[in-house]
């Protein structure tokens, strides 16, 4: 019996140690998620019209909501546009600045600078790049005799503009991870490959790239999450316009929640966002994990 008491005591002790973390996790992660899910099943109440249970009405409304489909499609293009290019660019820059370069510290810093600037500040800078006539891009284009272009005012180019800005902002950040990974690679690997007659490209393709895969997975997950999370620039650059051509899911959620004050529908959209992110994250871990060499 004393043994048993001790076991119980130990278990209780263990749970007690877990308690603070568990409480915080439950209060700030699990409860809000569940509350969001619950709220998506009700109408948005006002003082005069209290919330009512409506089942899946909000979801039905969502499926008919043209704007929802539009922002979802935009988000898909945004992800496809930003993720591969920013990762490839990050890898390229990291390999490049990992060499012995003159002013290496300076080059590294300048690649990293976009990352430390707040997105709002960046967006304000880029607003004046994109502005027609007086913007930097148009002024440079004018130097080559190319006419002005309304980059942000045209539904065909606006999303591309947002994508370019995001790549510029993100690539430097991802580069830091790649740089750290590259520096942990033993230099003899490259020397051994050189002796074996492998060129830079062969070595990169057969050795560097596969050995960077754990970093790539990490960066990829971050990039995917960011493609749903990074919407600050929209507030400055386009407010989602023109005609929702640059609106992204999270921005739409913000608009519904704080401009339309429709908490219930915002919750519905949030549930969808959570589901999409969860599916992507699980998929990435399951599929890619098998094909990655962790040292």
């Amino acid at each position: 019996m004393p043994d048993r008491t001790r076991l119980v005591g130990n278990a209780a002790y263990g749970w007690l140690l877990l308690l603070p973390a568990a409480v915080l996790l439950a209060a700030f992660t699990h409860y809000p998620a569940v509350a969001t899910l619950a709220q998506s099943l009700f109408t948005s109440g006002t003082a005069l019209r209290p919330a009512e249970f409506t089942g899946l009405d909000n979801y039905r409304f969502m499926l008919e909501d043209e704007v929802f489909w539009r922002v979802l499609e935009n988000n898909a293009w945004y992800a496809i546009g930003t993720i591969p290019i920013s990762i490839a660019l990050a890898m390229l820059m990291a390999v490049w600045v990992n060499r012995r370069l003159p002013l290496r510290a300076f080059v590294r810093m300048s690649y990293f600078t976009p990352t430390v600037l707040p997105m709002i500040a960046v967006a304000n800078i880029w607003l004046f790049f994109y502005t027609p006539e007086i913007g930097l891009i148009d002024q440079i284009a004018a130097g080559f005799g190319i006419g002005s272009h309304n980059w942000l005012g045209n539904p065909d180019t606006v999303l591309g503009c947002i994508i370019v800005l995001t790549i510029w902002k993100e690539a430097g950040f991802f580069m830091i991870f790649y740089l750290a990974a590259l520096q942990s690679l033993p230099p003899e690997l490259e020397e051994a490959a050189r002796l074996e007659g492998a060129g830079h490209w062969h070595f990169f393709r057969r050795v560097t790239f596969p050995l960077l895969m754990p970093t790539t997975l990490f960066v990829l997950i971050n990039a995917v999450i960011n493609s749903f999370k990074l919407v600050d620039q929209l507030f400055i650059l386009t407010k989602g316009g023109p005609d929702n051509a640059s609106a992204l899911l999270l921005y739409y959620i913000y608009e519904v929640a704080f401009s339309f004050f429709d908490q219930a529908y915002a919750s519905t959209l949030t549930v969808v966002l959570l589901a999409v992110l969860a599916i992507i994250a699980i998929g990435q871990f399951v599929i890619l994990d098998k094909r990655i060499h962790y040292r």
Partner: peptide, 28 residues
């Protein structure tokens, strides 16, 4: 046309022994 054996062996950790051995032949 020299081969080298490193103190750390400098094997490619993600490749199996066969691939490691054949690395140079494939490169060439």
């Amino acid at each position: 046309r020299v081969s080298m054996v490193f103190q750390s062996y400098a094997l490619f950790p993600h490749l199996n022994a066969r691939e490691n051995i054949l690395f140079g032949l494939k490169a060439r």
